[in-house]
């Protein structure tokens, strides 16, 4: 394994009495797809939220390129090149795809109008259309709100948004959960495309077939700790399930 791009150690996070993470470790190398798997409640989504700046850890260290970072907000994680496709997609249903695409980083008109905060909607629509077309997401209308799109199209918009902005690491939380067979295959292709463009992908999934199909490595969380890491090429489905359920224990044997 190359020197990690993103290296998290001993992450602890509690919500009231519930310990979601109890000293979890996690690492991503440049240009790889890592699957982060675990049973329900293992802490996968919490870990993803912490690494993308949505939540703050109670304890633990996060390093990017060997430099310690502390994400106080989503913007800080974004500035480090980290983007996330959330399980709930995090789209504003009443806004257009372009408005969602540029949410929080709106393009303003050049000149004095921009200083007044006037939006450059034409540019945002154009860039959104281009990005969606690159990923094969077809939108009938750029003016219709996201609420009028199908589930697959919404997912497409959310994925295209994250892929476009990600420069270092892309987190995808259950990106295929709502999708049919064809759309799932398209998302898996997309994950490979993103990796080949040099951006590392962290795939959080329940679906072992997806994990086997697309990931280079697998890290397994159980009860808030990393219990195993594998090279995908050298692991069986039984071993993955065993690690998730605690039937076997490994000591960081990657």
């Amino acid at each position: 394994m190359a020197a990690p791009l993103l290296d998290a150690r001993g992450i602890v996070k509690s919500y009231g009495q519930v310990e979601a993470l109890r000293g979890a470790d996690f690492a991503v190398s440049p240009g790889e797809v890592v699957a982060l798997i675990g049973d329900n409640g293992a802490g996968k989504s919490t870990l993803a939220k912490i690494l993308s700046g949505v939540e703050r850890p109670d304890a633990g260290t996060i390093e990017i390129d060997g430099e310690p970072v502390a994400f106080g907000s989503v913007e800080e994680a974004r500035a480090a090149g980290i983007e996330t496709v959330y399980q709930d997609l995090a789209l504003c249903a009443d806004l257009t795809p372009a408005a969602n695409f540029f949410l929080g980083r709106e393009r303003l008109k050049p000149g004095p109008l921009g200083l007044l905060g006037v939006l450059d909607n034409a540019a945002m629509r154009r860039e959104t259309r281009e990005a969606c077309e690159r990923l094969g997401v077809r939108l009938a209308s750029q003016n219709a709100p996201v609420s009028t799109l199908s589930g697959g199209q919404r997912q497409g918009v959310a994925v295209a948004r994250a892929v476009t902005w990600a420069r270092r690491v892309l987190f995808m939380d259950e990106p295929t959960a709502a999708l049919g067979v064809v759309q799932t295959r398209r998302v898996l292709d997309l994950i490979r495309t993103v990796r080949d463009s040099g951006v590392s992908v962290v795939l959080i999934s329940h679906n072992m077939q997806d994990v086997k199909a697309v990931s280079d490595r697998v890290e397994v969380l159980r009860l808030g700790r990393r219990v195993a890491r594998f090279d995908t090429a050298h692991v069986s489905m039984e071993e993955l399930v065993g690690a998730m359920t605690g039937a076997f224990e490994w000591e960081n044997g990657g």
Binding site: V54, T84, A90, C92, L95, L103, G117
Partner: peptide, 26 residues
Amino acid sequence: TLARTRFGRHTYAIGSNAEAARRGGV
């Protein structure tokens, strides 16, 4: 302001999905 500026856009975004707006960096 409501229809054409970033201030207005963020107003709509918060009402539509405040958590998504927060995760979007608003």
